[in-house]
Design a protein around this nucleic acid. Structure first.
Lengths: 341, 341
DNA sequence: TTTGACATCCAAAAGGTTTTGGAATATAAT
DNA sequence: ATTATATTCCAAAACCTTTTGGATGTCAAA
């Protein structure tokens, strides 16, 4: 049913080669012939079969991205923003995006990646939420497969990535809190297996040590990046005999959960307890009170990542293989004393 | 470099046909031969070239989904949940998912769909957030292309869909508010071009008329489903000479924005003004106060939708072509009077 | 007239798989 | 011994495209 090059060739009494080359803009076809081909293609409703092109060109013009879905009801707006960045970056260069979800650290993860890569479904991968020991990345590097990551690893591997300086980001947050007079500051940590946890925790620790306060392990609790875990972990901190007066959260979602826990106990966020998040998802601005948070340009990072992978695929040299962006603290009411809670 | 059927055939002195059929589990290959093929394939690290398979089978085993991204920084967790449902449903049947983003009603929209479909990149599409006059759906129906939608349309077209009874959902919310004594109830509407707006608005209107209160157009404002617009529109309602004592929002995100606007004016959500959302995204439970909302099982709907499309692709008859699910009101503190605001 | 350059076209191979329609051999039934 | 029936294998076509390496014809220069 669908129109192929063969159909056009038959109608115009030309060879498939000529039709292909006319459409492809090659110079070895007469201007008049090209016009006839173009018109016939339009009239007949020709659309190239992308699959056949991929097979022949040995290029699928497709990027792969596996969303590390921790929960079934995956809800972190972070990924949606990242996804749309990756998708837009890819689309701009004529690439499509193949998406899967897979629980991080699960046994199927390897299979999902292999299916995409070995099956030649994709030409490159974007990896997000990197781990200290990231088997996804060691696999890709070992295969020599084009990729770019959002985040670093603890592995001694040289691969292209974009990351945000989490130590600096949390450092800014801590400086802000310490400057406001806080002396007991808690930290709701992301899972330790994630690389950025190390950086953010380092920012927390260093700020405490520099200010002479010292690190107190009892003020650090580990969540899983969901609101629910932020809620739960904040509860634990509040149950402490001497609870903190401020808390830095590993991401915005946990901060929202923490705010909920604080408010549920009749305390006022900002006045009684200060809360800082990380990410600056759109919701951070519109919760109550608006959340002070460390902003990372997620959409732009996604876009950059897909652009980097495509550059690699196309064999062009990367001007910057490893980018570390400086985050920016956005101060809102969750860390300032106001009348209302 | 990658291992092909040809390589295995050469090593075992067999034909490509036999290797293919051995791997494919056909009965016309000797048990011993099959074993040899299987082992060689394993040893040599054979992975079928999915692209070549797609070309030959005329099936890409891929579903397409275009996220209607209204803003650049797309943040509605709704879509992430839907996406993971679609992806999981597809994966369970061996289908991949190709994702694009595109502004709804934009001129590129048609191109994005055409590229996927005419290029044979996908075997079926899932369409979300249906419009009253939905060109995406009329295009797909006209092409006879396998699809399933989340939502209905105003078009006289027979296509497979899953929808939630929005009229009933808002009806429940209204009954709850009216039962709590509210007499002036506002409605922050989704964009009118969307089909579900009609249903939800009908639920609002009917509840008012039934209760003898009558419909007051000045209490209805139109947002764009973002928190920012919920914030802005709530502001307008509050600026009214006689502001409502309760407000029903077209989705949770706008409800969160509305809560923000209310609290910013020093009013207490729940006590002073009741707020109801629609969706029950995970954040609804963890905002302050927790949001009363109409729950729709987004993940399950996504999963069902991809299952439906795949059934159609595989030529199996659908037992239920058009499904309308009953939503459920989840009552939380945003509509009940409490001490704290 | 021959040579070379140029313009225009095309047959065939290649990419990796599945499927069709036998072929070849062995075994069982007549 | 012949026919029928399984069993096991394979050559070739097909899916649709791109690319290679000419072929053919024209025209101008030598």
């Amino acid at each position: 049913m669908p129109v192929t090059l063969k159909d056009i060739a038959a109608r115009l009494n030309l060879s498939i080669t000529t039709v292909s080359r006319a459409l492809g803009g090659y110079p070895d076809v007469a201007a008049e012939t090209r016009q006839r081909v173009l018109q016939a293609a339009r009239e007949m409703g020709y659309h190239p079969n992308v699959i056949a092109q991929s097979l022949q060109r040995r290029r699928s013009n497709t990027l792969g991205f596996v969303i590390p879905a921790t929960e079934r009801y995956l809800s972190d707006p972070f990924f949606l923003e990242l996804l749309s960045g990756i998708g837009d970056g890819a689309a701009q260069r004529g690439f499509d995006l193949l998406v899967s979800t897979c629980a991080p650290l699960s046994s199927e993860e390897r299979t999902v990646y292999e299916r995409m890569i070995r099956g030649k479904r994709v030409d490159g991968m974007v990896v997000a939420r990197t781990r200290k020991e990231d088997e996804r990345i060691s696999y890709l590097v070992q295969e020599g497969f084009p990729m770019a990551a959002f985040g670093r690893t603890a592995l001694a591997l040289d691969f292209p990535f974009i990351d945000v300086d989490g130590e600096e980001g949390v450092g800014q947050a801590m400086a802000h809190l310490l400057g406001s007079g806080h002396r007991r500051i808690g930290f709701i940590s992301p899972p330790v297996y994630l690389m950025f946890t190390e950086h953010r925790l380092a920012g927390y620790r260093r700020a405490l040590e520099r200010s002479g306060l010292g690190f107190d392990a009892s003020l650090v609790v580990e969540g899983n990046l969901s609101q629910a875990s932020g809620y739960e972990m904040m509860g634990r901190l509040l149950d402490l005999g001497d609870p903190p007066s401020a808390v830095v959260c590993g991401n915005d979602l946990m901060a929202l959960g923490a705010i909920h826990a604080i408010q549920e106990r009749g305390l006022a966020v900002g006045r009684d307890i200060a809360v800082v998040g990380f990410d600056d998802i759109p919701l951070a601005e519109h919760c109550h009170p608006p959340l002070t948070t460390v902003r990372q340009p997620i959409y732009e990072i996604g876009k950059m990542a897909s652009e980097m992978v495509i550059q690699i695929i196309e064999g062009r040299e990367l001007q910057e293989r490893q980018v570390i962006l400086q985050p920016q603290l956005v101060i809102r009411e969750s860390t300032v004393t106001t009348e209302r809670g």
